[in-house]
Design a protein around this nucleic acid. Structure first.
Length: 291
DNA sequence: CACCAGGGTACCT
DNA sequence: AGGTACCATGGT
């Protein structure tokens, strides 16, 4: 049982963009690739010619769990046929090639996004890591690498209590996280939501404390496989307003209705391209200007 | 140092 | 239904 390395063959996969695009919060850039945690496994990923090199602390009988997490077998070309054919979408998708949606653990995804409200992505990562350091199970890590822990189980967060959670700098979100932890530990079945229609699964998620439409859509899209879920955060709202509504003030309900009908069954994927485009275009302009 | 961050909720009209 | 104050904290 020693450290192992393999290469997953992928095409059209921008690993760095995918891991930093605000869907997962535990990946750290190391000297040689990205170090993170998937389930109860420490993982190091590195983009190589024709694929992604993956290393773990133990030997792996199968890499299915990682292919599933990375959605390595999804072919982007198969999705694009379902994207709307307007100029904005074409430009945005072309500007963010190889950006993928991960398939994360529903509980970790739910808890992370409960902590995300009016927080910057760097800050969400800090809070999540504090949670893991305090109450996550220690993981086997190869010699010479920083220790990491698993994401804490809901039962653990339920028993430590709201006061203790608050010490992880999450502020008013502590009550939400504690309430949701208790419900999930008490039998609220996240996995079962996969089998339900989108609207039903979303409504069920929204009965959890701290989970409204936006966070529900994040969980549906990033962990439960609902490709049409379309999280509308401040970036997307601004972006849609600028790119599709001529900068005119537009109500949320109007924008949501537009997004659902315009972006279609894989709208969530388009949303992620748009989100990453909006968040990085300033930096890209600067880079270009310097050249 | 203001301003803002991958929002949700309670409470108002 | 549609609008608004408030929630706690730290990055830029």
């Amino acid at each position: 049982m020693g450290a192992t390395t393999t290469v997953l063959e992928v095409v059209d996969y921008d690993l760095a963009a995918t891991l930093t695009s605000g869907q997962a919060f535990r990946w750290r850039q190391a000297a040689d690739g990205w170090e993170g945690v998937v389930g109860r496994r420490w993982v190091r990923l590195r983009a190589v010619e024709g694929g992604i090199e993956a290393s773990t602390a133990d030997t792996q009988a199968s890499w299915d769990w990682l292919e599933d997490y990375l959605q390595a077998r999804v072919k982007l070309g198969d999705l694009r046929g379902f994207f709307p054919a307007d100029d904005v979408t074409r430009r945005v998708v072309a500007a963010t090639p190889g950006l993928r949606l991960l398939r994360q653990d529903p509980w970790e995804c739910l808890a992370s996004f409960i902590l995300s409200s009016t927080k910057q992505i760097v800050q969400i990562s800090q809070i999540v890591e504090l949670l893991c350091e305090r109450w996550g199970e220690a993981l086997k890590v190869p010699a010479g690498h920083e220790g990491r822990r698993a994401f804490p189980e809901p039962g653990r967060l339920a028993e430590v209590g709201e006061r203790a959670l608050r010490e992880c700098k999450m502020g008013f979100r502590a009550a939400y996280l504690h309430g949701a932890s208790s419900m999930v530990a008490g039998g609220f079945d996240l996995e079962e939501l996969r089998t339900r229609p989108l609207a039903e699964a979303r409504a069920a998620l929204m009965t959890l404390p701290g989970v409204g439409r936006k966070i529900a859509d994040c969980v549906l899209l990033f962990s439960l496989g609902f490709d049409a879920a379309f999280p509308m955060d401040v970036w997307i709202r601004r972006g849609l307003g600028e790119l599709y509504f001529g900068g005119r003030p537009t109500r949320d309900a109007r924008m949501e209705a537009f997004a659902v009908q315009h972006f279609g069954p894989f709208g969530g994927h388009v949303q992620q391209h748009l989100f990453h485009y909006l968040r990085t275009r300033g930096a890209q302009d600067e880079r270009t200007r310097r050249l």
